[in-house]
């Protein structure tokens, strides 16, 4: 199964890095899409189905916390798995994001294998 993945981060170099890390993991990816904040990501998700979302937390306009909350309120989008990729490694933040509906949480810095393992755990696939 080729995955359609949305990367949400206000840092262009981080979006590029995440795309390359996903490619390195050997996961079969159909299409990558990118958004610079939660609002842009929501608009994109309402037009195009994604199998997985990787999102940062600290972003302008709509941050990752509000983005995940909005996803949970939308019947059409609430089942899309979300992995948070953030510099914030505090236990409280991780708990909050998981309670809001995030399925996984990766703290930066991270090894590429960590991302692959988390994607496989969440999607239940051995891709690639």
């Amino acid at each position: 199964m080729a995955l359609n993945i949305l990367i949400v981060d206000d840092s262009p170099v981080m979006r590029t890095f995440l795309r390359k890390v996903v490619q390195l993991t050997g996961l079969a990816v159909g299409q990558f899409s990118e958004a610079g904040d939660g609002e842009a990501a929501l608009n994109l998700l309402r037009e195009r189905w994604m199998d997985l979302v990787l999102t940062d937390i600290n972003m302008p306009r709509m941050n990752g916390e509000e983005f995940v909350r909005q996803l949970g309120l939308d019947n059409m989008l609430r089942d899309i798995p979300v992995i948070v990729v953030s510099t914030d490694a505090s236990h409280d933040r991780i708990d909050r994001m998981i309670k809001l509906g995030a399925r996984g949480y990766i703290s930066k810095p991270f090894q590429p294998e960590t991302l692959r393992d988390e994607v496989e755990r969440i999607l239940g696939v051995c891709n690639g």
Partner: peptide, 17 residues
């Protein structure tokens, strides 16, 4: 993020852009 997380593993913090 790494420094602040190590300073306070418990308790949320917010980073500006």
């Amino acid at each position: 993020g790494c420094i602040v997380s190590k300073m306070a593993a418990h308790g949320c913090f917010t980073l500006d852009s």
